[in-house]
Simulated assay, not measured.
Amino acid sequence: MRKIIESTFITLDGCIGEPHVWGQPYWDDQHNDYNAKLAYDVDAMLLGRATYEGFKDAWTQRAGDPLADRFNALPKYVASRTLTGELEWNARLLEGDAAKAVADLKAQPGETIIKYGTGEFDRALLENKLVDEYHFWTYPVIAGGDGYRLGDGFDVTHLKLIDQTVFDSGIVVGVYAPK
């Protein structure tokens, strides 16, 4: 069975929205190397609609960069209730119930799938115990404001720390598994 890894950027005050605003000062070689390792250890991406649209716009403009080329080449599976038809950027829409579609995807032959972005789609994945590993990138920044917070609307969920990486920039990536 395939494994799903979720990779999420988060501030010290729990904000996950708009990492392009608060995260960029910390995007250095260590950050890029860790992200590249994740990208090269998987054979597909799993995305919600908003992340798919944002990533497509950002990564397709960076063609020629080895990491961007990897992101652009990977097959993508997109959960959405609003997108229809054929998708761009080597992507396919997950049909029907998202949790069932992801469970079916995990049962197919293949390697690890990486999921980027955190939002409503995660509730279905969490409730159905479909994520095998979480990489929470905690940035040394307080975003403030009323942004979307990690875990908004979720039930209490216990995880166990299985690894951590500390970057010189102050980012700490905690790797967690379901308990």
Rank of each mutant, 00 (worst) to 15 (best):
A143D: 04
R49D: 07
D146N: 14
N32I: 13
D155I: 01
V21A: 12
L74A: 02
P109L: 03
A98F: 11
Y134H: 11
M1Q: 13
L83M: 12
D163T: 00
K179G: 11
R49T: 09
Y40P: 00
R70G: 05
D155C: 04
T51L: 11
Y40E: 13
E6V: 08
Y52W: 07
G145A: 01
T138L: 11
D168H: 06
D13I: 05
G153Y: 07
E127Y: 04
F55H: 07
L47H: 00
D65C: 08
L150W: 09
V175I: 15
F9C: 10
K129H: 15
Y139P: 00
A107Y: 03
K100L: 11
D122L: 08
W59Y: 05
Q61W: 07
Y134W: 15
N128P: 02
S169T: 12
L93K: 02
G119M: 09
D43T: 05
G14S: 06
T8W: 06
T138G: 09
F121I: 15
H135W: 06
W89R: 00
P109C: 04
P140S: 05
V173A: 00
L150I: 10
D65V: 09
S80A: 11
D33E: 14
D152K: 12
T82I: 14
R149M: 09
L105T: 02
F167P: 04
V156I: 13
F167R: 00
W89N: 08
L46Y: 04
T157S: 12
G64L: 07
E88T: 14
T157V: 15
A44K: 01
I16M: 05
L130C: 07
T8C: 13
P75M: 02
F154A: 14
V172S: 01
G14R: 05
K129M: 07
R81S: 15
V141G: 03
Y176R: 01
V102R: 04
K179L: 13
T84C: 08
T138P: 02
H20A: 13
D155G: 14
G119F: 06
T60E: 10
H135F: 06
R81N: 15
R123N: 11
W137G: 06
E120Q: 15
Y34Q: 08
G144T: 07
A177T: 14
K56H: 12
V173I: 15
L126N: 12
E111H: 14
D69R: 10
T138Y: 04
W89L: 00
D41V: 06
G96S: 10
G117E: 08
F154H: 13
E6P: 02
D122S: 15
Q61L: 14
K160F: 03
C15H: 04
V131E: 02
A99K: 05
R92Y: 02
A98R: 08
L130W: 04
E95P: 01
Y134Q: 09
G48F: 03
D29K: 14
